[in-house]
Structure formats: C-alpha cells, structure tokens
Design a protein around this nucleic acid. Structure first.
Lengths: 215, 215
DNA sequence: TGTACATCAGTGAACGCGCGTTCACTGATGTAC
DNA sequence: TGTACATCAGTGAACGCGCGTTCACTGATGTAC
C-alpha cells in the first residue's frame, strides 16, 4: 500500500535507516536514551561512523525521529484498538499498558523525565494532540449523567483539538483524570516503585480502571 | 545540634562537599542527571578536576549521594508536615506537590525514568520504604468503613514495613492508589503533557485528592 | 547489447573536545612536645 | 611560645577513551544513448 514506484536504492535506504533505528532502540533499552551513539551503532552494523551521515544529518535528528516514531506507535496502537471496536476506556487502557510493558524505555522516551530545555517539535505536538483527541472521543461517547465537578466549573470553555475533536468540560475532566491515573500506575510500576510492597501492579491498574469506567 | 566536636577541617570538608553537590544540582537542572560532570563542577568552583577526588571517590558515588539526598529530603518534608499536625492525605499530597514543583529535576531523579541496569542501594530502599510507611500510617488512621475491593482480596497478607509499620489490605489499597494518582498528575504536569489542553494542573491535582480523601 | 557518464553508499583519516581517573608533587594547616 | 613533624587540600600533567562531525576519496550501482 502507498509508496508507489520505489526503486531498489530507495528500498535499500529505508532498510538501512530502519536498522539504524533498531540498533538505537537496543542501545536505549540497555543504557537509556542519553547513551545513543552513532559511532557505536555503526560499529554494531559493521560500518564506519561516517557512513551513518548518509542517513541522518546528526545524532539529534536520529533521536528526534525515535521520539516521533514512539508517539506514532502509540497512536497506531489506539487506532487499531478502536478499529477492533474496543475503543472505550478499558480498551484504550489495556492497550496503553501493553504498549508500555512491551518496551518500557520507549514508554519513558515519551512519558518519562523531560530533557531540560528540550522543545517538542510542532509535528510531534500534533501527534500528542491526536492521542488526546482519541481519548476525548472515548470520553464524550459516555453518558453525561455525572454531576458537574468543581474542576469542571473552572474550565473556560470546550476543548478543541485537532481534526475537529470537541469536548465538553465533563469529558475533558474524565479524560485527564483517566490519563493521569493510568500513567500514575504505569510510571510507578515501570520505575520499580512498587517493588517490595507485595502486590501485583496489574491489579492496581485494573482497580483504578474499574472505578473510572464505572462512571 | 548533634555533630559534636567538629574541627575546622571537618567543617571545611563538609562545606566543600556541599558546594560540589549544589553545583551538581545546578547541572542537573540545566541538562539532566546524565550531564553531571566532575570536571565541569571543578571548573565552576575554580578547582582542578582532580581536587574533587578528595571529596568523592568517583562520579558514581556523587550521583548516588544526590539520589539518597533527594529521597531523604522527601522524608524530611513529610515528617515536618506530620509534626505540624497535618500528616493526613491532603497534607502529604500538598507537601509532595510543593516538593516536586520546588525542583522538578530532583523529583525526576527519584520518580522519573529509571536508568536501565541500575540497582537501588539497600540504604536508599530503606528510605523509600520509610516514605511508604508514613503513607500507610496516614491511611491506617482513616475509618475502615469502606467495602472490601477486589484488589484487596488478592493481597496475601498485611504489609509489614520498616520500623514496625503495619497495614491492613484496605489501607494498603488506599495508599498505593493515592500514591499513583498523585504521581500521575505530577509526572504528566512536570513532563509538560498537559500543556495546550487548557486547564490548570493544580485543579486536577486537587480534584484527584478530593475524591480520594472523601473516603 | 555495449559504452559513457552520473549518482551515491561507504571508507579511513583527521579534527577538537570533554570525559573520568591516576599520580607524583607542593604548600598550607594543624598537632605534639 | 617556638620548633619538628604529620596531615591533607589542591595542582598540573598525563593516560586512554569515545564522542560528533567533516572531508577527500574509491568503487559499485544505476541511467542514457
């Protein structure tokens, strides 16, 4: 699908670019994002360090692309779940958790410690807003029989996201509450902060989800 | 108070050690923990890089001490709040938030992206358990009129922490739920993931707290 | 089908840099008599 | 109070290392006639 008329050279370029990124993900898994090194990747691939500059103009560009891919991966995951007809809060929650556990360092590249001074590129912000939009759609679809919370009275107006997502205050409150609770459990769990307390984080995740989805 | 019989030399040593750590915190604030450099700190202090090895045996030792200090700082904050008679969940929550906002990078050094392969030293685990203990004390003090949740039926037994903290399942559930929700809001807020959604994270934090503390 | 040319992936040497860490040393501060 | 000695903070040079990045180049692959 798509990508018509790819020459062998173009296919080869994409393949090598993909392998460079794969190696970078391996390095991230082993030693964190700050340990990504073009020279080390090249050595691993049996290339000279200079060769990689045919594929990425700089280390920063590679890193930026990894971040973008990570965001995009989550969007695709959510879309697949929704297409399967399971796009409610429980479906999204379990998809998020599976996505996070599948590659914890990829999760932290998106939702972990921010690099001071880093500015999110505009196109990545668009992807992030798209995630929020999917979330809000799921929340807007729910019945609005809940009482108005103090939080909601403070919201100035409806939220307007990309692609025409629109959300009333109640849906926005539910969405950000859902989002922060799921991430609360996940970041504590993946950070090892529940180790030794003697319970299964999956149960807490489910419990937090139940109390919200019952709404 | 304490620290009897400190010679001028000992006082001086402590002072220099403290300044080294201060400079390290500055570096962390500017460029993250991975950017901490003994040589850069020394240069900032007008010393040669080698001089710092009088005070820390290695860069890793310095980093380990910063982590320990961060944990200890949170414990002290909680203890101060409790001593003021405000050691309930709202008091702890607001103390946590103030502590996090006071130095976001210190917060992330404790609760942010874990360094792959890093093993928490035993003494730091003790401090972490102490934090959980304070939390559980606050939860155990609450009336136990709530129904038993599915989460709680899965807990094998009472949790036994350091210094004889003991917690029934209901208290443990409340504690970890409280903990993960507060961190959920904080890590999203400090990570900038609520930027552009158009609401005040402080309100969400308060809202999440209210719904829990009403229990 | 064969030849002439353009494209481009990859090489290897080189650049400057900052890093952590060691080591033999100097000189000031503190202690013992 | 003064002298002899021990302690120890800090120096400066040196080590090896890996990093990102540039540059002139070789040689293979693809294109045009």
């Amino acid at each position: 699908m798509g990508d018509a008329a790819t020459t062998p050279r173009e296919r080869y370029r994409r393949q090598v670019r993909a392998e460079i990124k794969d190696r970078a993900w391996e390095q991230i898994a082993v030693a964190g994002a700050s340990a990504v090194s073009l020279n080390a990747i090249a050595k691993h691939m049996g290339l000279s360090g200079a060769a990689l500059y045919r594929y990425f103009t700089s280390r920063d560009e590679l890193l930026a692309e990894l971040v973008r891919d990570a965001y995009q991966s989550l969007v695709s995951t959510f879309r697949a779940v929704a297409a399967r007809g399971d796009g409610g809060l429980p479906g999204l929650a379990h998809a998020l958790r599976a996505w996070a556990l599948d590659d914890p360092q990829r999760y932290f590249l998106v939702y972990g410690t921010p690099v001071p001074g880093y500015r999110t590129p505009a196109d990545v912000s668009v992807i992030a807003a798209e995630i929020m939009g999917i979330l809000l759609d799921a929340c807007t679809a729910l019945p609005a029989d809940a009482p108005v919370t103090p939080f909601e009275t403070h919201l100035e107006a409806h939220w307007t996201g990309p692609a025409g997502h629109l959300a009333p205050p109640g849906a926005l409150h539910l969405a950000v509450s859902f989002w922060s609770r799921m991430h609360g459990v996940l970041s504590m769990e993946l950070g090892g902060h529940f180790a030794g307390v003697g319970f299964d984080p999956a149960l807490l995740f489910q419990s937090e989800l139940d109390v919200l989805a019952a709404r």
